[in-house]
């Protein structure tokens, strides 16, 4: 059901953990639908993401997409991190089963939530960053309407 890459990131998740003093932290998803992701970012004075950590409650795909998302944003600038979309995460994992696509949306949303927190703390405006939604189902419905 899952690709080898998904299984690899589920079995050996990269960057699991917490940060004491993150530059930004965001939690998305809800326990009702069974997925919660929390992402921590450590961002230097030039706006480059030095470290990313995550914790996830969810299925195999939820863990793998969180792990891949942290890998993809590390070393990128804040602006570049915005380009790590759910599609980018899915491609990097060699795809997800259709029922699990919402996990990759959650990963994208987790990055945005952490960046939003960073921007708020530092009174910055990040071009192209929208306030993240807590409930990913709303986002899926919004996307469907568009």
């Amino acid at each position: 059901m899952y690709s080898e890459k998904v299984m690899d990131h589920f079995n050996n998740p990269r960057n699991v953990g917490e940060m004491e003093q993150p530059s930004g932290v965001g939690t998305v998803g809800n326990a009702k639908c069974g997925d919660i992701m929390r992402m921590y970012l450590d961002i230097d004075e030039n706006g480059v993401i030095r470290e990313a950590k995550f914790k996830t409650f969810g299925c195999g795909a939820a863990v793998a997409t969180s792990s891949m998302a942290t890998e993809l944003v590390k070393g990128k600038t804040v602006q570049e991190a915005l380009e790590v979309t759910n599609k980018a995460v899915m491609e990097a994992l060699d795809g997800l089963p259709p029922a699990k696509v919402h996990c990759s949306l959650l990963a994208e949303e987790a990055i945005h939530a952490a960046l939003w927190d960073y921007a708020e703390k530092n009174h910055l405006t990040i071009e192209g960053l929208k306030k993240p939604v807590e409930d990913i189902e709303e986002k899926i419905e919004e996307d469907a309407e568009q």
Partner: peptide, 8 residues
């Protein structure tokens, strides 16, 4: 649990 935000 060690990787669960709910447990954290």
């Amino acid at each position: 649990r060690s990787m669960s935000p709910l447990y954290e």
